[in-house]
Design a protein around this nucleic acid. Structure first.
Length: 349
DNA sequence: TAGGGGCAACATATGCGCTC
DNA sequence: GAGCGCATATGTTGCCCCTA
């Protein structure tokens, strides 16, 4: 059999020697690939494949490249009907595009062969759906990491889903097990974005149970230990700040400021955060050198840990923070949740 | 040209293990 | 056992490219 040159272009001359063909019933055939009269042809082994599957004139053969020299072959009769398609097989047949019927919407760029379409229609007939069925042909992004995810076409989603981030319930017919994947709109697709995650702008006033006469003027992260020289400089700074609430002192660790770290986060010690910070996530403004950075405070409800994320990495970068530098977080009690950050560079001690 | 797929980067969540 | 450093798993978004 002569292989079309357009097909061969996809392999940049790498198709030579022996290839393996997987037939619809799973059998594997070794077939020799050779050049004849400037054409690439399938030789030894091809005859066995033809005989075994009773391939006749006017049959269609679809070669799907799996890996290296391995091809899956789909055999269709003259009318385009598949022979021996097993239950789980799913082929994307670009050459066999069919228009979706009125009862279902097909994922964009996917096609059903006549046989697949017939099965879909039979299934729809059987289940008698109340609304239009969405048919998705599985792709890599549906089953592999990162993700996986299933994209729902805009038109279908607007017609049948809530227009906001929510959980949907998936259940297989006749099965009790349910799954609850998240449904959301991608922000990069110029859709109207959901406001569900933007309610952080409404800041509640701070808890004000601080300021007892015995309260220390500053709190050092419990795992950090200041040297004598560090302690002297920090105490001088804290005295100068004269904050109503204790100042939180953090020595920058790798996870806080090291550029080699993929993501930098800032954990605010529990002894400082629990009595002085809100117990719900919200925006925190960091003030330094008359400039302001917007960060997000995140609280892990299970472990009750307070983190600065979001704009923290930008703050680190803009202020050239390095591992070993010390940051003093002075909590401002008026207006939006704001912390003034005093930086002591590691060269100072 | 808009919508969607693919993929990588970025961001967040979670859990392990160490120290006090 | 609490607190926290850190690694890693998981979720989300940005961007490019392809296709209808």
């Amino acid at each position: 059999m002569v292989m079309p040159s357009r097909f061969l272009k996809n392999f940049a001359g790498k198709l030579s020697g022996t290839i393996k063909l997987v037939s619809p019933n799973g059998s594997l055939y070794d077939v020799e690939v050779a050049k004849r009269f400037n054409k690439v042809v399938l030789r030894h082994g091809w005859g066995d494949f033809v005989d075994a599957h009773h391939i006749e004139e006017n049959n269609f053969l679809l070669f799907r490249h799996i890996e290296n020299s391995l091809f899956e072959v789909l055999i269709l009769d003259a009318d385009g009907w598949e022979d021996n398609l097993s239950e789980n097989e799913s082929f994307q047949l670009d050459d066999l595009q069919t228009n979706p019927g009125p009862n279902y919407v097909l994922s964009r760029g996917s096609y059903l062969s006549k046989a697949q379409e017939g099965r879909v229609m039979a299934l729809i007939q059987e289940i008698q759906p109340e609304s239009t069925v969405y048919v998705a042909v599985m792709r890599k992004c549906h089953i592999l990491k990162p993700g996986p995810y299933l994209a729902i076409p805009k038109g279908y989603a607007f017609a049948h889903f809530l227009h906001e981030r929510t959980n949907v319930t998936l259940q297989r017919p006749g099965k009790s097990k349910k799954w609850h994947p998240r449904f959301y709109q991608r922000k990069d697709k110029h859709h109207v974005s959901s406001d569900s995650d933007k309610d952080e702008a409404s800041h509640k006033s701070l808890k004000s149970n601080s300021g007892g006469p015995s309260e220390a003027p500053y709190i050092v992260s419990s795992k950090s230990c200041l040297s004598q020289s560090q302690k002297k400089i920090v105490e001088e700074k804290v005295r100068a700040i004269q904050s109503e609430v204790p100042v939180f002192v953090a020595i920058m660790k790798k996870v806080n400021a090291d550029v080699s770290y993929r993501y930098r986060i800032m954990e605010l010690g529990k002894r400082f955060a629990a009595p002085h910070l809100p117990h719900r996530g919200q925006t925190v403004l960091l003030q330094c050198m008359k400039k302001v950075w917007k960060t997000k405070m995140m609280i892990l409800s299970g472990s009750r840990r307070w983190f600065l994320v979001g704009g923290w990495a930008t703050f680190v970068r803009d202020n050239g923070l390095r591992v070993g530098d010390i940051c003093l977080f002075e909590l401002k009690k008026k207006g939006e949740l704001t912390m003034k950050v005093h930086i002591i560079s590691r060269e100072q001690f």
